[in-house]
Design a protein around this nucleic acid. Structure first.
Length: 143
DNA sequence: GCCAACGTTGGC
DNA sequence: GCCAACGTTGGC
């Protein structure tokens, strides 16, 4: 893990946009965020940052890892240019998906923003938590 | 500026 | 389908 990289978690309802679609499209604009806190997180993302791809509602699990391919720019799906999106590139699927139930059962992940602010669709993940979650998913964090 | 009403998200 | 959390809206 490089020291100057930030980590995130983004949520998508698989009915709307799934990991499989992300893989097929390879690079996909992450649009439709209409929450100020989430927007702030999007705007903070740097090219090369990594994010967990989480399926909300259906599945409720981390299924893959994406990389920020393009930093924040005006969301074309917003009518007034007030919102931003980034481009996400598929990196790798999780060898084992990490479920919300597992995350909630882990005391060391109790501070995770995913747990604490369950309604926020774009949340930061600390480097420590990133490594724990990668390990839970059977992912080699050395890359 | 306060707060009730209402809408949305997302877990259960 | 229900409900908790939380954001937004609008009356006052």
């Amino acid at each position: 893990m490089s020291a100057d990289r930030s980590y995130w978690l983004v949520k998508s309802e698989p009915d709307a946009f799934s990991w499989d679609e992300q893989v097929i499209n390879d690079i996909e604009p992450w649009t439709g965020v209409r929450n100020h806190q989430a927007k702030k997180n999007l705007a903070t993302m740097k090219q090369g940052d990594l994010a967990f791809f989480y399926h909300s509602n259906v599945g409720r699990e981390i299924v893959g890892i994406v990389e920020i391919a393009r930093e924040a720019y005006p969301d074309p799906t917003a009518d007034n240019g007030a919102w931003v999106c980034v481009d996400m590139k598929a990196v790798a699927p999780m060898p084992r998906s990490v479920t919300l139930a597992e995350i909630k059962a882990s005391p060391e992940l109790s501070e995770l923003a995913l747990v604490r602010q369950s309604r926020l669709s774009v949340v930061p993940v600390s480097a420590d938590h990133w490594e724990i979650l990668c390990r839970m998913g059977g992912m080699d964090t050395k890359e």
